[in-house]
């Protein structure tokens, strides 16, 4: 508990958290606006045209509205989680930290707990905003709130799970990459354009090398995340829980490797 308290104090006593908070709010606003426009456009189409436009069904659109800010929120949580670790090396505070707590794995675990707390806070924040504003948005389009529908709550719950898993992945990545700039750039690139670029690679591989490669694209963390949150999009896609398991796997493997590396590494 002492270590978690210390890590929370570290987070609270620098400017980083509120800089991230300031970035989050407009990005969430943009996401909500985008989802609003998408839905507006979609409602003018027929059911069949909806499918054709690649927008999925109404359920998917409403779920998207109630989980607005997920894309940017998860990215910020991911980066902040990584920086929890990398800043110790960037600001040379690792020495002080590990002198106070030479059992380094305890420090990493405390950072993971704090990362999960951050994830839950950001998720709660965006969820409260979404629950307040989405019914209004839906109302402007003469739609019901859908708040009685289980699928809305399932989407919100899975959204929270995604936040938590990505935060753990961030801590693991921070331990492994250690360089502040390296970690933030790597994570941003993989998160933002990873799905598209890697999907192309998998398509090419399955086309020209071996067809089952296409099934492996679920191993891309962002794809696994999409699968977890939105469910299978194509007939061949694996079930939803596979995405969750893969994300948990990434978080676990990176955390374990990262912790072992941190334990063995010479500091200073």
């Amino acid at each position: 508990m002492n270590l978690i308290s210390a890590e929370l104090l570290k987070l609270r006593t620098t400017a980083l958290w509120w800089i991230f908070a300031i970035i989050l709010v407009p990005l969430w606003g943009l996401a909500l606006g985008f989802n609003w426009l998408t839905m507006n456009a979609a409602l003018s189409l027929s059911e069949a045209d909806l499918e054709e436009a690649g927008l999925g069904d109404l359920e998917r659109l409403v779920s998207g509205l109630y989980t607005s800010g997920q894309f940017s929120g998860v990215l910020l949580v991911l980066l902040l989680s990584a920086i929890l670790v990398t800043s110790e090396f960037f600001h040379l505070t690792a020495t002080s930290t590990f002198l106070t707590t030479p059992r380094r794995e305890r420090v990493i675990i405390a950072k993971m707990v704090v990362a999960v707390i951050i994830a839950v806070v950001v998720w709660l924040f965006t969820t409260v905003l979404n629950l307040a504003l989405s019914p209004i948005v839906l109302g402007t389009m003469d739609q019901p709130t859908y708040l009685g529908e289980p699928f809305v709550w399932q989407a919100i719950g899975l959204n929270g799970l995604a936040f938590v898993l990505w935060s753990l992945l961030g801590v693991g990545a921070g331990v492994l990459i250690r360089s502040q700039i390296g970690a933030t750039i790597t994570l941003s690139v993989v998160y933002v354009i990873g799905t598209q670029v890697l999907s192309v690679i998998f398509v090419v591989l399955s086309e020209f090398v071996w067809e089952p490669f296409m099934d492996l694209r679920v191993l891309v963390p962002t794809f696994a995340s999409d699968l977890l949150i939105s469910g299978p999009q194509l007939p061949d896609d694996p079930p939803r829980w596979v995405g969750g398991v893969i994300l948990i796997g990434y978080a676990a493997v990176m955390s374990v490797i990262g912790t072992l590396v941190t334990k063995r590494r010479d500091i200073g």
Binding site: L9, K10, T13, T14, A15, S87, H91, S96
Partner: peptide, 18 residues
Amino acid sequence: SAHRGRSARNHLRVICRA
């Protein structure tokens, strides 16, 4: 060996907590 943006007192408090 302290975070540039953290005050000295908070730097010490972090160690106290831990």
